[in-house]
Amino acid sequence: MKFALFGGAAAGALLASQVAFAAPEVKIDGSSTVYPVTEAVAEEFQKAKKGAVRVTVGISGTGGGFKKFCRGETDISNASRPILAQEMEACKNAGIDYIELPVAFDALTVAVSPKNNLISEITVDELKKIWEPAAQGKITNWKQIRPEFPDMKLNLYGAGSDSGTFDYFTEAVVGKAKASRGDYTASEDDNVLVQGISGDPQALGYVPFAYVHENPGKLKPLKVVDPQTGKAVAPSMETVIDGTYQPLSRPIFIYVNRKSADRPEVKEFVEFYLTKGAELAQEVGYTPLPAEAYKVAMDRFAARKTGTAFGGHPEVGMKIMDLLARELKS
């Protein structure tokens, strides 16, 4: 009886759908940060192709995505950071060449509760003092951030250690990826952090910019002082695009398998991504690259230039056009 129940439901559902045929497939996996952008592009692409091409997107994290990519299981890998040395090695051993294409910006926002009137800007040094591993159990009061602050308990909220946000924040602030104090409210789910910071006047935390954008009025984003220019800059689409919101903004990437790029469906998908990416990224709360960056990326893809602009380690605070002008290494 139970077979009849399940079998009937499944068979009914499938019969109801139009008879499918073996359509060409574009397989994508990787970062959860890049996922919303790629999902939007995949959705529009499938609509434009009227279902003639199947696009699948998984969420394995940037690292998990590269593992599959370098085994040749996926055509495109979503990455919220550049490919690392050991991943380059794995791809090389498997004979997989890749084309590195930045597709949007991801910015991190340091935020406090709207009820907090003490602070409106913060320096990277102050952030480092708060978040470095040595601060654990020691920096627990607002007074310790700046002497003029009142004697008030400091409640910290941040990304969980499995998240790309955590990697990037620690890299940009502490100087070493994954180096962070552990005694703070950590969650992989940024909505939890938004809720926590929003209601707690003693809170300070960091969340991806998209979450500030989607929750207007719930958070008070802080200006961050760029250590190179000494200017305090508020996070916004404009400051991220013109590269002045530093160091907490970074480009996010897709990596395309060089061999897959010869398949017409993958080629069309990537071209669609670079054409419609700006508009769709903005729609899902991300910051698009400047228009000329998509042009340069398109040229790079058309010329099938493989390799990475990074030496296998993440970097902080570079301008997108400088990045695109760099020599590629593999």
């Binding site: 008879v19 499918a20 696009v55 998984g58």
Partner: peptide
């Protein structure tokens, strides 16, 4: 084991005409 998150098509139907 790698379940997908975005998948906008149905598997091939088990029965056909």
């Amino acid at each position: 084991i790698g379940a997908l998150t975005f998948i906008a098509y149905l598997p091939d139907p088990p029965l056909s005409t």
